[in-house]
Design a binder for these strands. Sequence first.
DNA 1: GCTTGACTTAGAGCGCGCTCGAAGCTGAAG
DNA 2: CTTCAGCTTCGAGCGCGCTCTAAGTCAAGC
Lengths: 144, 144
Amino acid sequence: MTGSYVIAEVAARTGLTAHTLRYYERAGLIEPPAREWNGHRRYTEGDLGMITILTKLRATGMPIEGMRRYAALCRQGPGNEAERRALLIEHREQVLSRLDQLQADLAVVDLKIEMYAPATGSGADFGRMEDLCSGAQSSQPLVT
Amino acid sequence: MTGSYVIAEVAARTGLTAHTLRYYERAGLIEPPAREWNGHRRYTEGDLGMITILTKLRATGMPIEGMRRYAALCRQGPGNEAERRALLIEHREQVLSRLDQLQADLAVVDLKIEMYAPATGSGADFGRMEDLCSGAQSSQPLVT
DNA sequence: GCTTGACTTAGAGCGCGCTCGAAGCTGAAG
DNA sequence: CTTCAGCTTCGAGCGCGCTCTAAGTCAAGC
């Protein structure tokens, strides 16, 4: 029947390790799930869903603290959907600008790759590498 | 005369700190630059170019070790352009697949955002959050 | 002459996100 | 009864990429 998983099953389904799941729980990202009589965690389908969305937030670069805040809102129950939404939207904005930056930086790498291209008909001669990237950087924290 | 910078100038232009520049040097990413009589580093225009491309590699998620390998090839001098190119191309592949994954994960977040949308004409009723993300994950290391 | 500030070195410390180890309990299999 | 696998807790350790401290040198300005 749908809806009861021991930690190893959740690990298998979410791609996290059992260790990480416990860590997330300690960190306040996950509701402490119900326990069996012997103390073993029993995760519900809903837990699984929450964990999954958390992994997506993590995968898109949200720091643990942000996840914690989102999880706190969810735990508060209905009524704060606007806040949750705002949190996610702000995160999305950040991801999008990270994506933009990433593509810009990658473009420079691409240019460099072309400079290394074995002599093609296009006659790409070797410019000096420093001509590639002039001007001050964005002085951002170099987030990945 | 273009082409002589003390460390603070390089820091200003690259967005790195002087500390980080020295660290990169220690780590084998940067050629130890020439020194003035008093021991102060003097970076050339070429150094600046190299550092800049390194920051692009870093910004696109290349680990220090990869940068070190690229820098080593560059330091070896001409003749290994194919190798450098291959290294950069492999990196590009990785960045591109990271971008894909990032977009996929972001799409899930977007979906979630829509679920939180204030009641629109489209009548988005609240599905259960776990319906969003079913199935096993990619079990990837959750790279950012 | 003294202070200030930019540089030098070696090496320690930190923040993040896990990751792992040790010791202990339980239930089932041999 | 023994062994094994899988869970439990607590807390330490780790890898990465910086980031900072301390102590020293030198040059210029007041």
